[in-house]
Design a protein around this nucleic acid. Structure first.
Length: 456
RNA sequence: GCGAUCGUAGCUCAGUUGGUUAGAGCACCUGGUUGUGGUCCAGGGGGUCGAGGGUUCGAAUCCCUCCGGUCGCCCCA
C-alpha cells in the first residue's frame, strides 16, 4: 500500500474530527454528561477491546460476523467492542458483592461495527449508555417495583432530548414489552418455535409494506384470518397520555399480562412524561437479551433510524457469573442524533461552540511591545485566563483586531510598550487604558469568567 | 457481503467532439492603505483532476480494476 492518496483517507466509515467537528461532538457529549449526572448516574468506562467470547457467548452469528476482530500472536482473539452492555455486565458481575445498590452508571464510549456505512450508521460511533442495575426499592419480587427504574431511565433519555432543544412534537418514545408482545403473538396463533421470526417480521412491518408482510406472515404458518390479526398487533399505536383503557382494549389481553406496562405508565405520569411516550407493539429491538419493556426514540416523521433504544435485561448480569440482578438501560448514538438536530436547526454552528478566548494580545509595534507580549500572555494564563496572542508580524492594528474578532475573543489587549495596555471590549467597542501589571487581575474580574466556562 | 450513484484546490463549481505548463469565486497566508474589527490595493501557497493500469501521437475527458463518499439491501448494538 504505497498509495499516497489512500493514506490520506480515513478508513471506510471512520471520521476525522477537525476543531470545528470536535466542538460539535463535545457539545453533544457534554449534554449527555450533564444530563446523566443530574439524574444521579455516575460515569464509567471500559476497555475498547474485549475478549471476543464476551460477545459470542450471547449474540447470534449475524452480530458476531460484524465484529472487528483482533488477533495478536497466539493470544485469545479480541474484539473491538460493538456495544457496551456486555462490558457493563462484566464490570458489575466482577464486583457485585461490594457495589452499593442500585447501581446507576453511564458511559460515553466509542463503538465499532464492520458494516457498510450508510445514513445514520458508521463503522465507528459514539454512544451514550445509561443503565440502572438492581432493585430501586426494598428487595421484593413485585413486578411493578421495577417500573421506577424503567421510568427513571426513560426520564433521563427524555431530559437529554429536551436539553438539546427537541420537543414531544419532534421526537416520540415508542414503548413495548417483550412478554406482552410474545403473549399477543401466541394469541394470534404463532407457535413458540416461530416466535423469534414473528418478532423480526413485526419489526419490519412498516418497511416492507402490507403485501410482503402478509406473504411472510403466511410463511410463518398463519392462515389469512391470523395474518389480519397479526397485522392488527403490528399497528397498535396508542399515545401514552390517552386513557389507559384505550390501550388495554386495543391489545385485548388480561390485566395481569400488562401489569408492568401499567406500572410504568403510572411512573411516567408522575414524572410528567406521558406526552412524549406511545405504546407501540411493533417495537421489538434486535438484541436477544431483553426480557421486559423495550423502547426506542424516533423522530416523528420516521425519516431517520432510531435515535436511541433500550430496554430491560434482567438475566444478563447472571449470565456473566454475577448474582441475579434486574437491569434496564439504553444507548443513544451520536450519528442519528446529530442528523435529527441538524434537520430541526438545533445544532449551533461550530464557531458558536468553539472555546472563546478571554483576551487576545497584540503588540502595538512601539518600543519593546513584541517582547512584552510574551510575558504578558504568560501571566494571563497563570491567572487561569484563556489568552491567545498573534503570531503575525504586521503592525496593522486593524488586521490584528480582525484576527482577535475572528477567534471570538471577548477582549483585545494592545500592548503599548510603555508599561500600559489598551484593553478593548470587542463586543461593545469600548476601550480603556490599564497598567500592564494590572491586566491579569483586571481581566479576571471583568471577563465574567466562571470556573466552568471552558466546558460549555 | 450485494446493488445503484458519485469523485477536478479547504468549500462551491467551470473545463468544448480527447489537444500546450488545469481555471474561477469564496476561504487561507504575506504585506500595504504608516493605530481600531469594514472597504480597498498588491502579492502568495495549495490540485501528479481519488489511485493504479489500458487505448491513443496526445487522457481531467474513453475502457478496466481498486480506494473512498452518498443512498439502498442484508442486519441492527
Amino acid at each position: 500500500m504505497a498509495d499516497k492518496a489512500h493514506l490520506l483517507q480515513a478508513p471506510k466509515g471512520m471520521r476525522d474530527f477537525y476543531p470545528a467537528d470536535m466542538a460539535v461532538r463535545r457539545h453533544i457529549e457534554s449534554a449527555w454528561r450533564r444530563v446523566a449526572t443530574r439524574h444521579g448516574f455516575e460515569e464509567i468506562e471500559g476497555p475498547t477491546f474485549e475478549h471476543l467470547d464476551l460477545y459470542t457467548r450471547k449474540s447470534g452469528e449475524a452480530i458476531v460476523s460484524e465484529i472487528f476482530r483482533i488477533q495478536h500472536r497466539g493470544d485469545a482473539e479480541l474484539a473491538l467492542r460493538p456495544e457496551f452492555t456486555p462490558t457493563l455486565a462484566r464490570m458489575i458481575a466482577a464486583r457485585a458483592a461490594t457495589l452499593p445498590q442500585p447501581i446507576k452508571w453511564f458511559a460515553i464510549p466509542l463503538h465499532y461495527r464492520a458494516e457498510r456505512p450508510q445514513r445514520g450508521r458508521l463503522r465507528e460511533h459514539i454512544q451514550w449508555n445509561v443503565d440502572f442495575v438492581g432493585r430501586p426499592g426494598a428487595s421484593d419480587d413485585d413486578r411493578r417495583g421495577l417500573a421506577v427504574a424503567d421510568a427513571e431511565v426513560i426520564g433521563c433519555m427524555i431530559d437529554l432530548l429536551r436539553e438539546l432543544g427537541l420537543t414531544e412534537q419532534i421526537v416520540r418514545i415508542k414503548i413495548s414489552h417483550r412478554e406482552v408482545a410474545a403473549s399477543l403473538l401466541r394469541s394470534v396463533g404463532v407457535t413458540d418455535d416461530r416466535l423469534g421470526d414473528a418478532f423480526a417480521l413485526l419489526d419490519r412491518r412498516d418497511k416492507i409494506g402490507p403485501d410482503e408482510f402478509a406473504k411472510q406472515a403466511t410463511a410463518l404458518g398463519l392462515d389469512s384470518a391470523q395474518v389480519v390479526r397479526l397485522d392488527g398487533v403490528a399497528q397498535i399505536r396508542v399515545g401514552a397520555d390517552q386513557p389507559w383503557d384505550a390501550f388495554r382494549e386495543a391489545i385485548g389481553v388480561d390485566d395481569e399480562t400488562i401489569v408492568e406496562l401499567r406500572a410504568l405508565r403510572d411512573q411516567l405520569d408522575r414524572a410528567g412524561l406521558l406526552a412524549w411516550c406511545e405504546w407501540d407493539m411493533g417495537i421489538v429491538r434486535g438484541l436477544a437479551y431483553y426480557t421486559g419493556i423495550v423502547f426506542e426514540a424516533y423522530e416523528v416523521t420516521g425519516a431517520e433510524r432510531a435515535i436511541a433504544g433500550g430496554g430491560r435485561y434482567d438475566g444478563l448480569i447472571e449470565l456473566f457469573n454475577g448474582p441475579s440482578m434486574p437491569a434496564c438501560g439504553f444507548g443513544m448514538g451520536d450519528v442519528v442524533l446529530s442528523l435529527v438536530l441538524q434537520e430541526h436547526d438545533l445544532l449551533p454552528d461550530a464557531d458558536q461552540l468553539m472555546p472563546r478566548p478571554d483576551v487576545f494580545v497584540v503588540p502595538s509595534g512601539k518600543d519593546d511591545a513584541d517582547q512584552r507580549v510574551i510575558s504578558l500572555v504568560a501571566s494571563l494564563r497563570s491567572a487561569g485566563l484563556h489568552a491567545r496572542r498573534t503570531y503575525r508580524t504586521t503592525r496593522n492594528i486593524g488586521k490584528l483586531l480582525k484576527e482577535a474578532a475572528a477567534c471570538r475573543a471577548r477582549y483585545a489587549a494592545i500592548v503599548e510598550g510603555d508599561g500600559s495596555v489598551t484593553l478593548k471590549n470587542l463586543a461593545t467597542g469600548e476601550q480603556e487604558t490599564v497598567k500592564e501589571t494590572d491586566l491579569p487581575t483586571a481581566m479576571a474580574s471583568r471577563a465574567g469568567r466562571r470556573p466552568d466556562a471552558g466546558e460549555s
